[in-house]
Design a protein around this nucleic acid. Sequence first.
DNA 1: ATAACTCGGTTAAACGTTTAACTAAAATTT
DNA 2: AAATTTTAGTTAAACGTTTAACCGAGTTAT
Lengths: 341, 341
Amino acid sequence: MKSTIKDVAKEAGVSIATVSFVINNSKHISSETKNRVLKAIKSLNYHPSKSAVNLVSGKTGNIGFILTDDHFLRTEPFYTSIFLGTEFEARNAGYYILLTSINPDFNKNDPLPRFILNNSVDGIIVAGKIPANLIDRISSYNLPTVYIDYIPTKNCCPLVLIDNLQGGLMATNHLIELGHTNIAFIGADIEHPSLSDRLKGYKQALENAKIQIKNNLIVTNSKYPDRVSGYNSIKSLLSKNKNVTAVFACNDAMAIGVLNYLNDNDYKVPKDISLIGFDDVEADLMLNPPLTTIRVPKIEMGIEAMKLLVNTLKNKKSLLNKILVPVELIERESTSTIRKK
Amino acid sequence: MKSTIKDVAKEAGVSIATVSFVINNSKHISSETKNRVLKAIKSLNYHPSKSAVNLVSGKTGNIGFILTDDHFLRTEPFYTSIFLGTEFEARNAGYYILLTSINPDFNKNDPLPRFILNNSVDGIIVAGKIPANLIDRISSYNLPTVYIDYIPTKNCCPLVLIDNLQGGLMATNHLIELGHTNIAFIGADIEHPSLSDRLKGYKQALENAKIQIKNNLIVTNSKYPDRVSGYNSIKSLLSKNKNVTAVFACNDAMAIGVLNYLNDNDYKVPKDISLIGFDDVEADLMLNPPLTTIRVPKIEMGIEAMKLLVNTLKNKKSLLNKILVPVELIERESTSTIRKK
DNA sequence: ATAACTCGGTTAAACGTTTAACTAAAATTT
DNA sequence: AAATTTTAGTTAAACGTTTAACCGAGTTAT
């Protein structure tokens, strides 16, 4: 039988209020009494009822985690790793996470995640790009929210972002340092801040190196940055440009698609074409050749986001915060110095 | 401002009890009154407080999901997909899932998942193998539990299992039908019921085909069925057996390791050696060549497990149930007829 | 005509906490 | 020594539901 605060009070010979004060350290109680209560709690294996605490406090102890179906289902465990990070930190902070995925084509009349409708969360973490109309609807609930890897149009909330610009610079500089000048950029969904920042970094690196930016080396017309788009983008690019010696793909998924096309069509990587990706997902290591990429600290991003949210929840005042997590060049075998013609 | 049942009652001009009856369909209310209440609920955008409902009902509305760290972190999204299935069904049934990962070397004195200690769940889903002492500790809490892809030693609970024996038969038969007779089995962790059943299927298929079972073609001494183990296992096998023409790996992770070794060492797949895996994880499609494998319906397993648990929760009586989910041969390009010597 | 049901509701207790308001005793100040 | 403050605790209301017990008005059976 589950024991309640009443049982503890009776066992310790005090009122239930005293037990509550001891549990929450919310009022000074003599150490003698405190010990009696603590002993009773232990002997009865008492744990406060969450429901009761939640009811009276008006809190839920839950954090909602939202991401789109396609992000959750994608092969590369990118957002999954971020989720894991939030879960680790939630454990420290005593929160539970309620995870839900939503349709990327969220309709005006689609129902919101049920944990929002049912007031089952104290705050929300949004990972990756989600539809603008969903953001509007969510923000009307005035729940503290942290965005990971996306900047909502109406800038309102704490953000945890990748240093995409820096990453774009690093990737492109790496190729430039290897002697490449005909460097293609394979991107997608140019409205996504993360992806367009990577492109910005690419352009900036070229400018810095006094290499002319050629628009016909930049492909960004795919809707989603996935493997298939990568495959098709490099295909159409190479059909028009034979002299490309290096490719910077805006993420590893597209890079894998690019690599597949190159492997299928007798381009040797990196001998004929160097290839660099972005994200550093697990699959990169198993590719042939292993992919050079820009590492994004995914688990750490989740941890930081949860810390930020818990902080906001505790202080009540939403400190407009923005964390830019650093990235790192991971040199593997898909890039090399330009071959002499 | 959040509206409560009181607001609805006032708006509809009835007592709060009537509102409750309408919400839960628990007593006959005239359709006229019912409509008034429904209208009030809608106009106030009322949603019952979970905490209050939970408090009075003694339930939590939550399901705990347990799996080991290494299962959650592994590259192949196997258990992740199972989780997704449970989440889908939880949405239908109105439950929230609290996910936690635990250390595979769970110590006698390690704390149980906090959702168990804090009475935050009504039931538990365990995915994959977990330590025996953890099972003991969990079962002492008498929470309805469903096991997915693992048979606990003390058989107590509903189970959702893969038809591993049948899968082992199918995989091996496929290779036999292609003309192979020197078929290796690459496995691991032979105490894991799923893996040992796959081996059983392998042996049975050979027997049925009157092919002699050779123990030196069976490698099962790795602790975990992962890529590295696959790589090392095939390496040591081929160093002693040059005449192997086909390999059945106990799962896709090991198969990928095997494939990497074969690719690295100038064995052509499937020309020199045919290779079949088990699980059908996303990565298989991107391999070179794409992996023939036995598909396991992962999402569906999650759905079935959640249905089973919800059923147990509703009926209270734990119907000792066991669901064996069927598997399917997915022929891709890593297997072919034996080459003529 | 009256007793016995049925129908459509209402009242109030209960769930397990937190916390504001109170109190009695002890300690401190004047 | 009286007045005041501090300490260590208690009492009771409140949170938002569910549901057993109750009730008055029709309806039906006798």
